[in-house]
Design a protein around this nucleic acid. Structure first.
Lengths: 184, 184
DNA sequence: AGGCGGACGTAACATTGTTATGTGAGATAA
DNA sequence: TTATCTCACATAACAATGTTACGTCCGCCT
C-alpha cells in the first residue's frame, strides 16, 4: 500500500504536474481513502519527502557508474539527462515545486550523500585543487544550466544547448594549469 | 490603492515568507476587502505578476551601472548582492516560490529585457566569441551559485563562498585566448 | 436632475490539507 | 470459545485558501 501511494503520486506528478498532487487525487488513484496518507506518511509532507529521497536515490543510480571512474563529463551528461527525463521530480528536489513542502532532516542528509559522492568523484578524477570547491563549482554550473533550460529561459541560440552545456562542463572539470587562466 | 496592495504584498513576502502571501492577509494589511485584488489585478496571479516585473526592474536598476560600462565582475557581484538582499523576491522571479503562480507573457518579456541587457553588457565588455552564448553561460553560473547559496546547500568549505563566487565569475567572464583552454 | 459605470464590502462557493470519530478484522490472552 | 485490544480504513467534518455573485454607494457625464 505504501508503495502504491508513492507510485500514484509519482505518475500523477509526472503526467499532470505538481498542482494535481492533491491528497484526494493521490488516494483515489491508489485506491484508498484520504487517511491512508496519514497512517503511512503522517501527511502530505511525508509522502513528498519520500519522493524527495527517492529522487536522490534514482539520481545516484544514474551518476554512480561515471563518478566511480572519475568521469566528470559523463556524470555531467548523465545529470542533465536524468533531470530532463524526470523534470517534475527534479523540481521537487531542487526547485520547491510542491507548495509548502520542506524536506525533512533525513531527506536533507540524503541530499548531502549525493553531493559527497560528487566530491568523491572529483577527487577520483585527479583534477587537483580543493575537491569540495571544485564539486561545488561543477554542481552550481550544471544546476544553473539545467534549471535555465527547464524553465524555458534559453535565449535564442545559434547552437543547440547541449553543445554549450558540454563546453561549460568541460571548462568546469578541466585540470588546473598553474599560470595561464583562460576559459572557452 | 494599487501601490498600497503591492507594498503590502512585498513587506508580507519579505517578513513572513511566501506562505503568508494570502489574499486576506494582503488586503487587510492594505486596508481594503478581498475584492480589491480582483478589481486591480484580476486575481492573486496578477498581483504576483506585478511583483515579478517589479523585481526585474529593481534588478536592472542595480546592474545597469555596471553593464553600461561592460564591467561584468561588478555586475556579477551586484547580482549576488541584490539576490541576497531580496531573497524572497528572487525566489518569486526564478524559483517558483509562490504556489500556482505562472508569469504572464508580459512578465516573461520583461525578464527577457533583463537578459538582453546582460548580453549587451557582455558585448560591451569586448570579450570575444558569441555574446549570447557568453551571457547564457554567465547567467547560468551566477544563478547556480546564488541558488545553491540561498538554498543553504553550501557544503562545508574552508573559504568564504564569496571567494569561490568571485573565482567562478572571473572564469566565466575572461576573454578568449585562442589555443590554451584552461580554467581556474 | 437623472442615470450609469466602476470601486468596494459582504457573504457565499469549491477546493485544499487535516483531524475527530466510528468500524471492522485479526491477533492475543484467559 | 470468548473477550479485548490494536491497527488499518472510511466517513464526515473542520479551518483556511482563492474566487465569485450580489448589493451598495459615490462620482461623472449628458
Amino acid at each position: 500500500m505504501r508503495s502504491r501511494l508513492v507510485d500514484a503520486a509519482l505518475t500523477l506528478l509526472q503526467h499532470q504536474g505538481a498542482a494535481a498532487l492533491t491528497v484526494r487525487n493521490i488516494t483515489t488513484r491508489a485506491g484508498c481513502s484520504t487517511t491512508g496518507i496519514y497512517t503511512y506518511f503522517g501527511g502530505k509532507n511525508g509522502l513528498v519527502d519520500a519522493i524527495f529521497s527517492n529522487g536522490f536515490a534514482s539520481f545516484d543510480q544514474a551518476l554512480d557508474p561515471f563518478l566511480d571512474e572519475g568521469d566528470l563529463l559523463g556524470a555531467g551528461q548523465a545529470y542533465r539527462r536524468w533531470a530532463l527525463a524526470h523534470p517534475m521530480q527534479y523540481m521537487v528536489m531542487f526547485g520547491r515545486a510542491v507548495p509548502d513542502f520542506e524536506p525533512s532532516d533525513a531527506g536533507l542528509e540524503r541530499a548531502l550523500v549525493s553531493f559527497s559522492k560528487l566530491a568523491a568523484g572529483v577527487r577520483r578524477a585527479g583534477i587537483g585543487g580543493d575537491a569540495d570547491h571544485r564539486a561545488h563549482h561543477i554542481f552550481a554550473t550544471v544546476h544553473g544550466y539545467v534549471m535555465l533550460e527547464m524553465a524555458g529561459m534559453a535565449p535564442p541560440l545559434s547552437v543547440p544547448i547541449e553543445t554549450l552545456y558540454l563546453h561549460a562542463l568541460a571548462s568546469a572539470s578541466e585540470p588546473i594549469r598553474p599560470p595561464g587562466q583562460t576559459v572557452n
